[in-house]
Simulated scan of single mutants.
Amino acid sequence: MFAIYAGAVSREDPLSCLRVGEIELPSAPQGWIPVAVKAASLNHHDIWSLKGQALTAERVPMILGSDAAGVVDGNREVIVHAVIGNSAGGDETLDTKRSLLSEVYPGTMAQQLYVPAGNLIDKPAEFTWAEAACLPTAYLTAYRMIATKSATGQGDTILVQGAAGGVATALIVLGKALNRNVWVTSRTADKREWALSLGADAAFEPGERLPGKVDAVMETVGEATWDHSLKSLRPGGTIVISGATSGANPPADLNRVFFLQLNIVGSTMGTAAELRELIDLLVRTGVRPVIDRELPMEKGAEAFALMASGDVHGKLVLTVG
């Protein structure tokens, strides 16, 4: 079967571990459903897998990818929810044994994959395959951060730190769809302009003093922006953290946290129920994921090189057939 997979892991040279070609698909757990993949999209998680941060050397070779849309039973069009976990408690992301596709079980960048039946969400006819394949990771993460975790409502202001990343882009698009005022920071003028073109209401340089306090900060950067995030919040405001790309151990500034009664909330991926909510939101509003480009899966190495370079504006999508 044709697939894109990790043949090894290397922190120093992750792209050297990428393989594009034939691989035997391992047998699936009993009861899992085969999906004929039509499109899969890249995330930074895929680069982290090649670095050995999201994938251990003992588990290679491993088919990469956590985002996909495809066909089940010959005619049912579906979006694949990437979180493999027990939802008995109502939230599979809280299952201590949860995993993401491509961490324990083969990922989505292949002609076929297997997932539990509960991980299959019907794809609306309004979505292209590429659009549908963008939703399960970055866009679901962003939706959960705003809609579930931020304690904000319509008309409130959120600050998105580091506006050029995949989740940050989704936060801008979905923030506007959810009727939030969206402010962003970015290091370069062109990325600030791009964020404004997506609908952001204001764009600032990192660390710049804002014209007012915000109700919530969407934090994926970590150490480099943490002080600014704390100082930008109104009393009682919330920082939602789903990543720490610049470092995970900033000065906590606990005096500010307790005196202003700030809320610091972690957020990881999202549930199948939240994915359905996200899909409903996009159908209702007409908003769609931002796609940089679509490439055939055979050009997977090119797509990974683009992702690693950071020179992308939106999602990279790989198509099958």
Rank of each mutant, 00 (worst) to 15 (best):
L254Q: 15
G52R: 00
N179A: 14
N179T: 14
V214S: 06
T225A: 05
A147K: 10
Q30D: 15
L233S: 00
F127W: 13
A305W: 07
D156A: 11
Q112M: 05
A216W: 07
A117R: 00
L318E: 04
V104Q: 14
M297N: 11
L174G: 01
E302C: 04
E302F: 06
E208T: 02
R288W: 00
E126Y: 09
I146Q: 13
A36C: 14
G70H: 04
S99I: 07
D280M: 12
G21R: 07
Y114N: 01
A224F: 01
E24W: 12
E223M: 09
D311F: 11
P136R: 09
F2I: 15
G155L: 00
D215P: 00
P34V: 01
D91S: 12
M1P: 15
L25S: 09
E77V: 06
W226D: 08
M297Y: 14
A273D: 10
S10K: 05
R180V: 06
A202F: 12
E92L: 10
A125Q: 12
D122K: 05
G270C: 03
V320Y: 13
L18T: 08
L198R: 06
V78N: 00
T271G: 06
V240R: 15
A110L: 04
V167L: 09
G237V: 01
E294H: 15
E92K: 03
D13E: 15
L275P: 10
L64M: 13
I172H: 10
R293Q: 15
I291D: 08
E22A: 07
L262G: 08
A8G: 08
S66F: 10
D67M: 15
G118W: 15
G52K: 00
H44A: 10
A216V: 02
T152I: 03
W194M: 01
L171D: 02
M62V: 05
M307P: 10
D253I: 09
A305M: 06
K176G: 11
T152A: 03
N119A: 13
A308E: 14
V35D: 10
A88Y: 11
K97R: 14
L25V: 10
T137N: 14
D73F: 02
V20H: 02
R234K: 08
I279R: 03
L275F: 07
A170W: 13
A69V: 06
